[in-house]
Design a protein around this nucleic acid. Sequence first.
DNA 1: TTGACATGAAACCATAAGGTATTATATTGA
DNA 2: TCAATATAATACCTTATGGTTTCATGTCAA
Lengths: 119, 119
Amino acid sequence: MSSNGQSDAMSQGAFRALADPTRRRILMHLSKGEMPIGDLVDQFAITRAAVKKHLVILEEGELISVHQRGRERINRLEPKGLKSVSEWLNYFSRFWDDRLSDLKAAIETETENQIQRKK
Amino acid sequence: MSSNGQSDAMSQGAFRALADPTRRRILMHLSKGEMPIGDLVDQFAITRAAVKKHLVILEEGELISVHQRGRERINRLEPKGLKSVSEWLNYFSRFWDDRLSDLKAAIETETENQIQRKK
DNA sequence: TTGACATGAAACCATAAGGTATTATATTGA
DNA sequence: TCAATATAATACCTTATGGTTTCATGTCAA
């Protein structure tokens, strides 16, 4: 196997957390700004307890962090977990990623132009 | 919610498939080359039937495709599913992604050097 | 055409996962 | 201090999941 073993072990919690569509929706909401559980519950047709369970799993996957503020607990998007998933995925990017090559081509052209202009 | 709804629906199967560590290991193996189920079974301490189930789930997530060849069925890495996951993740990249800017910097340097050498 | 090999499919089992309802705890403000 | 609010925690239920064992199918080679 060689590559990616450690990164895979670290991101297990994140992969698990992302498997559920409700949890991904929660992340989408939190991407617009941190908020307490109450605000999230309003967005879903499930009970507060169910949302709370999702938040715990998201926290375990290091996709969110929780911060006490008075009697509220604020849930905030946490880059760490997402980053580890992205890094795992990156190992496979050579099989499909047009973005990288497109970007590379674009930058090369751009750089050439800059150099042209400098002359 | 607005953004990312369609992409999320499409990648549900892929997210689900990626949640299991054994399935991620299978993908790692297939990244080294397509192979029949028998070759994969040798790499794991579980039965052929269990591996087969994983392959079905990977196929449902469009992470692999299967091609008949004689009496063998070859499992091949499929970019589609990985790409949809990466696109979903991309929505969040602004929260953490140093990769793009790093890459851009690296390519710029590299391109400059190439042009230097051409002189 | 018959055995051996490579595989798929079905039935079954234990545990994890997602949900509910209910009970308990802590902080704010009058 | 006491009610109201915001939340956590527990017990419980149903279905999904990952695994096994057993049985069925299809294809190659002699």
